[in-house]
Computed example of a mutant assay.
Amino acid sequence: MAKIIIVRDYPHSPRKVWQAVTDPALIPYWTSTGKGARAVGFEPVIGNRFQFVAKPMPGWRGIVDCEVLEVREQKLLRYTWVGSEGEEPTYVRYELDPAPGGTRFTYRHTGFSGVGGFAMAKMLGSIRKKMLTTGMPALLAEMDDEGRLRSDTTLRRGRHPQ
């Protein structure tokens, strides 16, 4: 089975990183370095069903169906990921650990199977790497210590300065 594991250290508190990954208003800022998905109906509550919605493209309807499986405030979020109707779910896990000077963020996406799963993991892995290396640091730098986007931010949903 193929999987994606990305580990990044951010010079920000777990509280701030947690806010960036769980506030539906903030999610499109860091995902915009990929396909710009917004979380529709998302709440970090076990059993919550939500969707990531992005621009459709040939071969993909632009919607990922998800369900929250596990939540530990400022530590862990785990949910299912179904990118196409009828496919078996894969599993996404965000782990936040205090680290010297900030937070170690571990992204895991597991459960890809077969040749198609291997190809999907490879494609999603490069997109996620960009989101977590470019998008997330840009967003965190524009957030105040309370986890709110600064009123004078230069970030725009769907676009980031290069």
Results as ranks from 00 to 15, higher is better:
Ser113Ile: 12
Pro58Gln: 13
Tyr91Gly: 00
Arg104Glu: 14
Glu85Thr: 07
Phe50Cys: 10
Gly36Tyr: 05
Tyr91Met: 05
Gly41Glu: 01
Pro89Val: 11
Leu76His: 02
Trp60Cys: 07
Leu76Arg: 12
Gln74Asp: 13
Glu67Phe: 08
Tyr107Thr: 00
Gly62Gln: 09
Gly114Ser: 13
Phe42Gly: 01
Gly117Trp: 02
Leu76Cys: 06
Gly117Asp: 06
Pro56Gly: 08
Tyr29Leu: 08
Ser113Asn: 14
Gly36Pro: 06
Thr31Trp: 03
Arg72Glu: 13
Glu73Pro: 02
Leu96Val: 07
Trp81Asp: 11
Gln51Val: 03
Asn48Val: 13
Met57Gly: 12
Ala54Leu: 06
Val53Lys: 09
Ile63Arg: 07
Gly41Lys: 08
Thr31Gly: 02
Ser32His: 05
Ala39His: 04
Gly117Arg: 00
Thr103Lys: 04
Phe118Thr: 13
Glu87Ser: 11
Leu96Ile: 01
Arg78Gln: 15
Ser32Lys: 04
Glu43Thr: 14
Ser32Trp: 01
Met57Arg: 15
Pro56Lys: 10
Thr80Phe: 06
Glu95Met: 13
Trp81Ala: 05
Tyr107Arg: 00
Pro44Asn: 10
Ile63Trp: 00
Arg49Gln: 14
Ile63Lys: 11
Thr80Pro: 00
Arg93Ala: 03
Thr33Arg: 12
Glu88Lys: 14
Gly41Ser: 09
Arg104Trp: 06
Leu96Tyr: 00
Trp60Gln: 05
Tyr91Val: 03
Pro58Gly: 11
Met57Asn: 11
Arg93Met: 03
Lys75Arg: 15
Gly101Tyr: 09
Asp65Met: 09
Thr31Ala: 08
Tyr94His: 11
Lys35Trp: 15
Gln74Leu: 08
Lys75Gln: 15
Trp60Lys: 08
Gly114Cys: 10
Gly102Leu: 02
